[in-house]
Write a protein that binds this DNA or RNA. Sequence first.
DNA 1: CGGCAAACCTGCGAGC
DNA 2: TGCTCGCAGGTTTGCC
Length: 280
Amino acid sequence: MLSAMPELPEVETVRRGLAMAMEGRRIAAVTLRRNDLRRPFPPDFALRLTGRRIVEVGRRAKYLTFFLDDDWVLLGHLGMSGRMLVGLAHPGPPGKHDHVLFDTDDGRRIVYQDPRRFGLMDLVEAARLTEHPLLRGLGPEPLDDAFTPPVLSAALAGRNGPIKTALLDQKLVAGLGNIYASEALFRAGIAPDRRASTVAGRRAAKLVPAIKAVLREAIAAGGSSLRDHRRPNGELGYFQHAFAVYDREGQPCPGCDCATGIRRMVQSGRSTFYCGKRQN
DNA sequence: CGGCAAACCTGCGAGC
DNA sequence: TGCTCGCAGGTTTGCC
C-alpha cells in the first residue's frame, strides 16, 4: 500500500512505489468511478489506457508522469489529498473516495483515492509533455544541478513580496510546498517575511543548499506523514519527526534557546512556522 | 506583472 | 453527544 499528501518528497516517494509496481506492466483494465476530479478526465480516458504498457514512471515537480508504449503520457497530480494505493487485484468493494482503479496484467490493482478531489489526470503526447499548460511555466527542479544560487536570486529579483510566498510559486522553483518552504528557510536562517528580492548573494548561497538538503532528507525518510501517508510497504514516512519548525508552534526552537520558541504566522492565507531569533 | 483573497472539496479535531 | 468553526501537505482564477 502507498499513499501521499504531496510536496516533492511525498510525490517522489509515491513515484518510486508506483515504478516498482507498474514499470514494464501492461494495463489490463481501468475503471473510472466518476467523470471528474478538479477537471473532467480526458475523452476515452480508460479506453486509451487499456492495453498500454507502462514504460517508466517519472516526476516533474509535484506531477507524476506515466510514460506509455504508444508515446503518450498519463499526467497526474495528487492535489492535497490524493493517494495511490498499490494492492491486490481483487480487494473488497471500492471505497467512497476510490475514483480510479488501474488493474495491471500481473494481478495488482492501483487505486487512486482523493477525498477532496483537488487532483487531476490528463493525457499528453510525450513529445509535447513539456508544452503541456500545467508544466509549461514550471521553474527548475530544486534537486537539479541547474538550480543554483545565481539562478534563484535571478528569479527573486524584482519580487517585493515575502520570500516564503515566493518559494511556493512553482514558476520560480518547482516542488516546494508549505512544509518544506518553512523548513528550508529555518535551515538557511532567513526570515519568511523578508522581501524576496533581498535573498541574493550570501543568503541565496545558504538557501539553495538548505532547500536541496531538506528535500533529499525527506525523500530518504519516505516523506512526511502528517495524517495518513504510507510508504509502498505500508510503513509511515517519518520525516515529520525531523521537522524543526513546521506545525511546532510554541515548542522550543531546535537551533537556539530563545524564550518564545517556534512561532506561527499567516502569509497569503497559509501557515508559516519560524524562529523569530534565528531567522532574519 | 505582482499580490492577495476566494474558490474548488471533504474530513478532522477543538471548543462550546 | 452533537454542533460549529477553523484548519489542512495545492493550484487556479479573478480582482485590484
